[in-house]
């Protein structure tokens, strides 16, 4: 459904997109992961037809995203990374305008979504919080029941409860065979919904795999606090990669060998286990070190 081929856009020799290739099949949910400034939004801008590629290009449903952008838009629901609405309107005015500009006048899905996200649509947009704007944006993206959804960091600004509502929504749309591309800078978010993912760094795709294989290469660091100092010794003796942080605290790195980790801990008296939040480079050191495009 979404096809990106040799997409290249040079802003400077180092910044931009370089020879990007990936495909999202119909009914698939694709996670697009990368740190800030890696080129996620730039790729999405090309898919939306806001930018003209220097080389290569992208198609949605075999329509070129630049040359046929207005036609492509019929298929797409779009959530921008940075949401800015027109001035001097309230939420409902805006949603109505969007529907009219799409020549659609079936409000059921819209009202259902408003209900679901518990949005007060009469609030003037300039008085809306980040989270409220995000909700309006999500509703605007889903309300015309598009075939393809392009979502740029969809959960930013939402509280955990609303994130849950959003994830359920994605899973439902997936059931209905919709094609979804969503970007994120957090693997955890992608993990829960996506079938496959691409990892982008400095404008280059460094990995393109299904979620299962990404999970096995994902590195997680656990901070384990034990009761006895002898347990620290037991842990250090193991095959796992460990680092002693304090008298009774050890950092254990787990990468696909969760079983061993649990067995090891079963020999110790554990007081506290916690995962440490990490950035993408740490989670996927494996890919970032190699620095080459996996096809």
């Amino acid at each position: 459904m979404i096809n990106v081929k040799k997409l290249t856009k040079r802003f400077t020799p180092e910044k931009g997109l370089f020879d990007l290739n990936f495909e999202v099949k119909k009914g698939e949910v694709f996670g697009y992961i990368g740190p800030n400034g890696a080129g996620k939004s730039t790729t999405i801008r090309h898919l939306m037809g806001f930018m003209k590629p220097d080389d290569g290009g992208s198609t949605i449903n075999d329509l070129d995203c630049w040359a046929k952008s207005a036609e492509v838009q019929k298929l797409i629901g779009y959530l921008p990374g940075e949401i800015v609405f027109l001035e001097g309107m309230n939420g409902l005015d805006f949603l109505n305008l969007m529907q009219k500009m799409r020549k659609q006048n079936v409000p059921q899905k819209r009202d259902e979504l408003i209900e679901r996200f518990q949005l007060d649509v009469k609030t003037p947009i300039r008085k809306m919080s980040k989270g409220m704007k995000q909700k309006v944006g999500i509703i605007a993206a889903f309300m015309h029941d598009p075939e393809v959804l392009i979502l740029d960091e969809p959960t930013s600004g939402l509280d955990p409860l609303m994130q849950r509502v959003f994830i359920d929504l994605i899973l439902e749309e997936k059931q209905r065979n919709k094609t979804i591309l969503m970007s994120s800078h957090s693997f955890q978010e992608i993990e829960r919904t996506c079938d496959s993912a691409g990892i982008i760094k400095d404008g280059r795709l460094v990995a393109l795999e299904d979620i299962h294989s990404l999970r096995t290469v994902q590195r997680r660091v656990f901070e384990v606090k034990v009761k006895k100092e002898s347990d620290v010794e037991t842990i250090r003796q193991s095959q796992l990669q460990t680092e002693v942080m304090g008298k009774k605290t050890v950092h254990i790195t787990v990468q696909g060998n969760d079983q061993e980790f649990v067995q090891l801990l079963s020999h110790c008296e554990v007081e506290h286990v916690d995962t440490r939040p990490q950035d993408l480079e740490d989670i996927f050191m494996h890919y970032y070190d190699r620095k080459e495009v996996v096809k």
Binding site: F50, A70, Q73, I76, Y78, M101
Partner: peptide
């Protein structure tokens, strides 16, 4: 102004061409 602020994105995300 619409391009600078970004709200143009929403107008162009509808099936109306830039010319229109």
């Amino acid at each position: 102004r619409l391009v600078d602020q970004g709200s143009m994105a929403y107008l162009l995300a509808t099936p109306n061409s830039r010319l229109k």
